[in-house]
Simulated scan of single mutants.
Amino acid sequence: MTALTASKAGPSFPDWLRDRAAHIDRVLEELLPTAGQAPQRLHEAMRYAVLGGGKRVRAALVYAAGHASCNGTPATEASLDRAAAAIELIHAYSLVHDDLPCMDDDTLRRGRPTVHVQFDEATAMLAGDAMQPLAFELLAGMPTAPALAAQAVTILAHASGSLGMAGGQAIDLGSVGRSLTRDQLQTMHSMKTGAMLAASVTLGGIVAGASSATRQALDAYGRSIGLAFQVVDDILDVTADMASLGKTPGKDAADNKPTYVSLLGLDEARSYARQLGEAAHEAIVPLGEGAERLAQLADFIVFRDR
């Protein structure tokens, strides 16, 4: 694997990723309530949380999986936009809530004050609460077959609920100061971080009407890159500085949280991330050249430095 595989056709991967990030920012800008719409302060906080930058990896995974599954039509592209926006809304809400004093009590996110610092704690809570139903509203309104929209809603609901992201966060909070086995740590991170990344891939396939075989390949890919993302996050919490990370580094160790670095050591954690990246590559071999962007995203996730 290489970090930035050259594209056989079309723009380079860095250019493609920047284009997808700029595109979903425009989509979100249009779909979010305007800051001047009552209640203004709530809508200002929502826009602050969602439009404040970020790598937009989850949105990119939606687009890459969708394009790997079909040639695309205008309706499919519009549905991919809504699915990508929904994923980013759920991700943004999770960050707002994770940063609250009752959770991780963070003051910096994406290089800016966290939402509860910029506004206030109650507004931050409500902003997260409001982003969740908006995400499902976007999925329900996709210009696609009702059965596919229903599948998309179900996938996102499961990935973000007690058996996915929220459940993983609960396990994380309950694990402070405790030693977890490798299996327990993997379960926690597969739920907390991996579930939403895997859902991004699955949603792209659903919206594009992927075949059963393609869905299976995407699911296997999603599980691998979802866990790889968290392993690399654990590594960066130890190795990156605040300027590159955009949030407070070293908090996991300071809060005595179990991580892949604390369990395996830095070198073995890096090796495990590479193994997961290789598994992601192997999973999408049956999809051929159409999965090139997915392969590049796997490399980006494993080798990123922030």
Rank of each mutant, 00 (worst) to 15 (best):
D129F: 03
D172C: 04
G290Y: 01
A198D: 12
T5L: 11
H23A: 07
G161H: 13
G141Q: 11
L28R: 12
A86M: 09
G168E: 03
A269G: 06
E77S: 06
E268C: 13
E292C: 07
A152N: 03
D183P: 02
R306F: 13
R20A: 09
N71Q: 07
L28W: 14
G164T: 04
T187V: 03
A38H: 06
A38K: 13
T214H: 14
V238L: 08
G52P: 14
P143R: 09
D219T: 05
K55P: 13
T76W: 05
Q186A: 13
V231Y: 03
H23Q: 14
V302T: 14
F300E: 05
L138K: 08
L287V: 01
T144V: 15
D233K: 06
A195K: 12
E121L: 04
L89R: 07
A140V: 04
A35E: 10
L31Q: 11
A86S: 09
Y260G: 02
L294Q: 00
R110A: 06
P14S: 05
D237K: 11
V50H: 12
A135K: 08
A65R: 00
G226F: 04
Y93W: 13
A145D: 12
L89T: 05
G164C: 07
A170K: 01
A35N: 05
L32P: 01
A283R: 00
D104S: 03
P146L: 15
F136E: 00
L227T: 02
V261A: 04
G72F: 09
L276S: 02
G277H: 09
V96R: 03
P146A: 08
P33T: 06
L236M: 12
P101L: 09
Y221R: 00
G177F: 08
L108M: 12
A208N: 02
E292N: 07
G246C: 11
I87G: 02
R47K: 06
A228K: 14
A135M: 05
L80A: 04
A149G: 03
S224C: 14
K8M: 00
A217M: 13
D25M: 00
L4G: 00
H97P: 11
D25R: 02
G168W: 01
A280E: 06
D172M: 02
L80C: 07
A208Y: 02
L227M: 07
L108E: 05
L80E: 02
A92Q: 06
A130S: 15
T76D: 10
L17T: 02
Q37K: 15
I90H: 09
Q230A: 06
L95T: 13
Y272F: 12
P11H: 08
R18Q: 09
G36E: 14
S69E: 04
D219G: 00
P249L: 07
Q184I: 01
H281V: 04
S69W: 01
L266W: 04
E282K: 14
M165Y: 06
L100M: 11
Y272C: 00
S271L: 14
A273P: 13
M131C: 09
F13I: 06
F119R: 04
G174D: 11
R182D: 09
E29D: 11
P133Y: 08
A59R: 05
G66R: 02
G226L: 08
L28K: 10
R112M: 09
I225G: 01
P14C: 05
V232C: 10
D233T: 08
T193I: 15
H97N: 05
